[in-house]
Structures are given as C-alpha cells and as structure tokens.
C-alpha cells in the first residue's frame, strides 16, 4: 500500500503524511502516536507547552531526529527508512537526502555560517549541492536576498547583521533550494521583540505565495492571521487541532484553555 518513489502524487494527496509516529528519549515518550497530513499550500502552526514534542516533531520531519515507530511520507516517499520484505532498514544518507531534498528548514538560532557573507551563505548549497556555476549561484542567491528584502546586505558577514536580518538570510538560504515544504522551528523565539515583525512579514509573504509551511511558534497572532490549521501538542500527542478561528475562540479542550490563558496573561497589555 506504500506509494513507490516513482508514482506521481495526486493533487489532493498530502505533501507530508505522518502516520502514527512515536519517539522516546530513554524513558520519556516525546512523540506518542502522532498522525497528521499536510496538504499542498497549507500553513500549519504547531503550538504547545515546552516539552510537548513540538520541535521533535518538526525535526523528525527533517529527519534531524530519527523517529522510532510509524511512518513519515514526504511527497509519497518514505523518509529515513526503506521497506525491506517484512521489516524495514535504515536509509542511507543519499536515500534520506533524496526524499528530503524538497524540504527546507529554518532554525531558532539561524545557524548561519559565520565565515561566509550573507550572499555566500545563500549561494553555498546552490554551488555544492545543485552544482550551479558560481555566477549562476550568486545571481539566484541575490534574487533570494531581494525576496527577503536584504539585497543591500549581500556582502555583510552574519556578525554584522541583526538577529532579524540573520533569520531572513537563513530563510533566503533555505528558499534558494526551491523547496516544496518549509519547516520553521520557533523562528522568532531568539529575536528581540522589535525584530520579530520583519521575519513574520517574510513568512506571511511566503504563505501568500502558496508555500506549504509547518511552523512551531509562540506567536499566536501570526497563527491566528496566517495558519490554515493550528495544532496543539501536549505531552507528545495532538490534543487539539483545527482552524485558528475555532481553536482560539471556541476553546473546548481544558489543557488548551490553560495554555492559552497562560499566554494571554503574559502577553495581553490592554484592559480585559
């Protein structure tokens, strides 16, 4: 029943198909039987208390963490493992990269390479992985930097850029590889409050342009405005999910109520 690598994906089929995945770190069950389908151009925001497994879920989709049970299909292809008769074996790095090549990731701490300029960072994978010529790569990289509004900073080293600017370069770097899916792991959590807006704007533009996105975030405003679906993760399970309007306004679930109340108490600064 598993789709093979060569079968084209029907337009309605999920781009990311997560079926009952679990993961433990020692005695802790960090992910507990999570199933989720992400459709083309859908924007999904994942929220939840710390330790709920949000980052682990995202990193499992990028296969930066190896999930223990269940299956993750990226565009119809099994990620991280290869079916072998009755069981399955670990995929080789080449096989993982092949499945993962259309997935881009943006990290909480940007992870720009400090010894290369902004342009250098964006162009690097184009040269090394897509094997473009240096000129072609630089042209594409410049276009990406323009898209995130940082063409003027192309020759700056990360140490000279603000947090918001670094994160935008990181987004450009991931976008340069022409991903079909973008994963964001708390992209604004490490930023000073005034710099959060510029990054969220870039992400909103991406969403409007039709990118399929999964965002782990604490920015409820962003989730409310841009998400097609919000997923509330608690103790490794999906405790609630739905469109932001329903999830936020008609809060049914007790844990979600608590979580949102907590959030409101810390963040609301007008008269209630």
């Amino acid at each position: 029943m598993t789709p093979t690598a060569t079968q084209p994906l029907s337009p309605d089929a999920p781009l990311i198909d997560i079926r009952g995945i679990s993961k433990h770190f020692g005695p802790n069950r960090v992910l507990d039987g999570i199933s989720l389908g992400v459709r083309r151009s859908e924007v999904i925001c994942i929220i939840g208390p710390s330790g709920s497994g949000k980052s682990t879920l995202l990193r499992s989709i990028a296969f930066l963490e190896k999930y223990d049970a269940g299956e993750i299909f990226i565009e119809g292809q099994l990620l991280g493992y290869v079916n072998q008769g009755q069981g399955r074996r670990d995929a080789t790095t080449a096989e993982i990269n092949r499945v993962r090549q259309h997935v881009g990731m943006v990290f909480q701490h940007f992870n720009l390479w400090p010894h290369m300029t902004a342009l250098g960072n964006v162009a690097e994978a184009l040269i090394r992985v897509k094997r473009l010529s240096r000129d072609e790569a630089r042209r594409k990289a410049m276009a990406m930097l323009e898209r995130v509004g940082l063409a003027a900073k192309a020759d700056a080293y990360p140490i000279r850029l603000s947090g918001g600017q670094q994160q935008r370069v990181a987004i450009a770097r991931a976008l340069a590889m022409e991903p079909h899916i973008m994963l964001f792991d708390e992209p604004t959590s490490a930023l000073d409050p005034e710099l959060v807006g510029e990054v969220l704007q870039v992400m909103k533009n991406l969403a409007h342009d039709g990118m399929t996105m999964m965002v782990v975030t604490h920015e409820m405003g962003f989730a409310a405005q841009v998400a097609d679906r919000v997923i509330f993760l608690d103790q490794g399970k999906i405790a609630a999910s739905g469109p932001p309007a329903t999830l936020f306004r008609d809060v049914q679930q007790e844990r979600l109520k608590q979580f949102l109340q907590n959030y409101l108490d810390r963040n609301a600064f007008w008269e209630r």
Binding site: A62, L64, T93, N97, R100, Q101, V103, G104, M105, F107, H109, N111, L112, W113, E124, A125, R128, V129, A170, R173, A174, M177
Partner: peptide, 17 residues
C-alpha cells in the same frame, strides 16, 4: 555548533562538503 551542521544537512550537503 551542531546547528550549523544541521543547516548544512538540511540543505543536502554531503558530510565531506
């Protein structure tokens, strides 16, 4: 930092690269 390596991994760069 591990993150720098993970970014490279996600971009599809080989270990040697």
């Amino acid at each position: 930092p591990r993150g720098h390596l993970e970014a490279a991994q996600c971009l599809g760069m080989s270990r040697l690269t």
